[in-house]
Design a protein around this nucleic acid. Structure first.
Lengths: 345, 345
DNA sequence: CTGTGTAAAGCAAACGGTTCCATGAAGGAG
DNA sequence: CTCCTTCATGGAACCGTTTGCTTTACACAG
């Protein structure tokens, strides 16, 4: 038998309300009673029943992460785990539990979100993707439940979101190469329907333009966030008559592919081709040579998302006009793959 | 205002009990009433309040994963994410939600577990590690709450657990090399306090012994589940007077280190040294050459853990004497790194 | 000695369900 | 035409907390 507030009350010779008030630190409880009740709770091993508490308070002290459908890729796994760690750490510091849910498709996801929110199992939701049109976002927005998007969506301007400034990040990455003396710089992009690909491409363009460098269309290739894309891009670039001396890749995985290809063809990095990429996965510093990468602070992204969400849950006076887009700073980590000035050759 | 069972009842002209019975598919409800109530529920957008339900049923339809303290390593992240995916998928199929929790230290973990279980927020727990002595396991065992351990513990014999047969896996890996014609085979182990290291080492020994091969102490080196360990082990092995022609490494990350080292020294894989390792992380097939690896079915491990736990929750007649250790099959994936018969040299 | 203010604690009604028990109607057996 | 079942439903208690409203008990001013 589990011990309830009534058992404690009986043993302490007070009413259940008093015990409840002791628990919540109500001011009008004498120090004496408070102490007595507390020791008895300790003695009896009392733990409050969260369900009963939630039922009356209409609050659950838990939030939910919606994972996108299983993305089998290496980076996804690393990315999500890191994000989850950030979220869980912050949430637990704020006294919130974290539920994690996922659906095989958008319909299932919507059902899950609706069930959890309307069924009062969670107080808010963190979304981990950004599709263009999204039934889940539509539902959340219209029903007014607190939620935060990790990523960014240009279709929904006024929702809470946490993201990097990917344009700026790519600008920085490209500028780094430019400042090393490179003038012919290639770009390996990701799927064009992802906003992150577009943003990074834009940043690259801005940097090139900003320095008055030539931008050839054949220096920009599209791919996936996968090694293979890098491999293919590399062989394409290296066969160009006037080939780039450096390249920016949207993802570290792409860099690994480039590296492998260059290695096979006996090219040297960074002498024959300098490389900078994004995300700074743990592997980037372990490859040979280690890859320069933009650290996007994944953990921090998750940590902040949780913070913003919980803040919103706790005071829903939704500061109209105030910031609703939180930008996590990025940081260029310069490693061997870009430490070479071509001019000296 | 959210719509409750009473609102539905009123609108349908029946009592709340009837609505509840319709919801739970009670047999003694006329088809007509059932249909009517169901359409009204649909119309009004009724979603049952999980808290109220849990309060009375003393069951939450959710389980909890306890993550060990942030292990920053690459493999951990990949491993845990894959495991979580398996757990979440299976749980959601069984209609269970998954909470994920972690603590900075054992004390915090224990507090969390206790709060969640005794506070009736979850019905059971999945533990993702196996320390030797563990206050959390002690608590769970003595309090009788349902839980499953992913991994294995020799201190606790009779608890539910899901794991691989690591001895057999290492046996298979080693035998593969032996069957290719190798006779001098090295082993790069992990931290000796981890059971998985010990088991795999044992499997290696068994295989060598079983084939009557010589086992030199200097062919066995200890390390971590990290690239660096592989790098060091490699340079140690290659400087041995009678060096191994093949090696088994406890983890793919170790293989990457070995590979990098061999590459720097211009050795060829598998001609100069054949390699097999464990865990088959997504990267193993992308390295050059691709690494032969034992796939331990991480997703499956999680999937099964969830299945076993939920089964136990639902029928706690704990089949005494029945299996309480579930073994997930492993599978040797042969790739280029071990496809070479040394005899032919 | 009565009236008033205040601190401390109790009572009872929620919160939204589930479920045991009671009840009425209908159908069949005797 | 009763009496007993069976079936479909209603009534009410309860799950463990919280909380607004009372009540009790003083202390003190008038």
């Amino acid at each position: 038998m589990t011990v309830t507030i009534k058992d404690v009350a009986k043993k302490a010779g007070v009413s259940p309300s008093t015990v409840s008030r002791v628990l919540s630190g109500h001011p009008r409880i004498s120090l004496e009673t408070s102490r007595k009740v507390k020791t008895i709770m300790e003695e009896m091993g009392y733990t409050p029943n969260m369900m009963a508490k939630s039922l009356v308070s209409k609050t659950t002290n838990s939030i939910c992460i919606i994972l996108p459908k299983p993305a089998e890729e290496l980076f996804s796994n690393l990315f999500f785990m890191e994000l989850i760690r950030g979220i869980v750490t912050q949430s637990s510091r704020s006294g919130y539990d974290v539920l994690i849910s996922s659906g095989a498709n958008e319909k299932e996801e919507l059902e899950a979100v609706s069930r959890l929110l309307k069924g009062r199992r969670v107080d808010g939701v963190i979304l981990l993707y950004s599709r263009k049109d999204d039934a889940v976002i539509d539902f959340l927005e219209s029903s007014g439940y607190p939620f935060v998007l990790v990523g960014r969506s240009d279709r929904y301007e006024d929702i809470l979101s946490v993201d990097n400034d990917n344009v700026m990040a790519a600008f920085d990455a490209t500028n780094h190469l430019i400042s090393m003396g490179h003038e012919r710089i290639g770009f390996v992009s990701g799927p064009p329907n992802l906003i992150v690909s577009r943003d990074r491409l834009e940043g690259y363009r801005k940097a090139m333009q900003n320095s008055g460098l030539e931008m050839r269309p054949e220096w920009i290739v599209e791919g996936e966030f996968l090694q293979d894309s890098g491999y293919r891009a590399m062989s394409f670039f290296m066969n160009l008559p006037n080939r780039p001396t450096a390249l920016v890749a949207v993802d570290d995985m792409v860099s690994f592919g480039v590296l492998r290809g260059l290695n096979e063809l006996k090219y040297k990095v960074p002498e024959d081709l300098a490389i900078v990429s994004f995300n700074n996965i743990p592997l980037s510093e372990l490859s040979s040579p280690p890859i320069s990468s933009i650290d996007i602070g994944i953990y921090h992204l998750g940590y902040t998302a949780s913070q913003v969400l919980i803040q919103t849950i706790q005071k829903p006076d939704n500061d109209p006009g105030y910031t609703n887009r939180f930008v996590i700073p990025h940081r260029l980590i310069v490693r061997e793959s870009s430490m070479y000035a071509p001019g000296k050759k």
